[in-house]
Design a protein around this nucleic acid. Sequence first.
DNA 1: TAGATTGTTAATCGATTAACAATC
DNA 2: TAGATTGTTAATCGATTAACAATC
Lengths: 205, 205
Amino acid sequence: MERAIPDIVVGRLPHYLRALQHMSLEGRRLTSSQELSERLGISAAQIRKDLSLFGEFGKQGTGYQIDYLLNQLRQILKVNQIWDIALVGAGDMGSAIARYQGFTDRGFRVVMIFDNDPSVIGSQIGPFTIQSTDELVVAIQSADVRIAMLAVPAANAQEVADMLVQAGIKSILNYAPISLNVPDDVHVQYIDPVIHLQRMTYYLE
Amino acid sequence: MERAIPDIVVGRLPHYLRALQHMSLEGRRLTSSQELSERLGISAAQIRKDLSLFGEFGKQGTGYQIDYLLNQLRQILKVNQIWDIALVGAGDMGSAIARYQGFTDRGFRVVMIFDNDPSVIGSQIGPFTIQSTDELVVAIQSADVRIAMLAVPAANAQEVADMLVQAGIKSILNYAPISLNVPDDVHVQYIDPVIHLQRMTYYLE
DNA sequence: TAGATTGTTAATCGATTAACAATC
DNA sequence: TAGATTGTTAATCGATTAACAATC
């Protein structure tokens, strides 16, 4: 069996992709591990080593063709397609996520929104009608959605996560400030601003 | 000189703190590295080792007193106080952050909001009047704020970051999907949902 | 050609884990 | 006491870096 790619390497690839996408938008054609290193604060050797796990994408003396490497990375990360996302929670955070314009050109789009508050169910956020959480499992199953974003209060997050798992969701981006219990084949990533803030206050006097 | 605490350890402490805070709210009194391990998906040995870098907080045979460890961790992370935060960007994301109720009991509060859009400057978000970005440097300096959250479009993020640095900000939580260049003594943490999503699509078939 | 930069190896560095004496 | 769990050591494991031959 092929050696698996370390998860820590997979975690850096989206950063490479993002930097390359910026460079491409700036009209740049070529870059180097050196330049990426400066932009990202990751050593040039590490960038070359990470990329070499997937193939030989550069040319000695020249560097990397930005658009070529961009497409390779998109394929590796499987974002050379648009993934549908189910969003649960239509409060302040959920609404902001629903309106966010930055998903589409990076491989994602929100396609359904759920909430359990009767006073918002049926109302619109942009092009979406907020659906009841009661419909969640069936709606996600029939649309064959694999990715969900969770923006509900911490107290409801585990319960909703269980429903998402039942619906066949395999990736959850969790905005609720709580650790989720899910089966091994379901991936969870966390966004909790306070975790980041507390990590920085350690270094403040 | 004392050996510095590895940054990766500092990064785990807020997770311990969050789990303990939940347990405390549940009315629990005692916990163990074993229990924390299960809740967090971090090995018990690692949790004990991390904590031991700061002192001896547990008792053999018994475990850790939740409230005691909670307070120790709050001291270590310096969140046994409330830190003021300047928020820049009053769009969808900025507004959602401004309204977020989850900061206060974890050591933070937003105290000022800036935007560069004349059509929103002067209007209110909750108790705050949105100020012009022109006032940012002076306002932050005179209030002696050290932490900022950045929720502006990527195109303006570096420019705003420069102003924040000029104003004396030492910690930036950046929601804009772009790497920032700041001096060595300024810490930056990033929140970009797409980075997390792309990391998970790698594992989807 | 001379200069630049990759891909890769081997060495280094650092983080994690296993194991257990100490002790509550 | 017997059982449980810490704090810590030493061993293991894995990630990062330095260095350079290959080559564009």
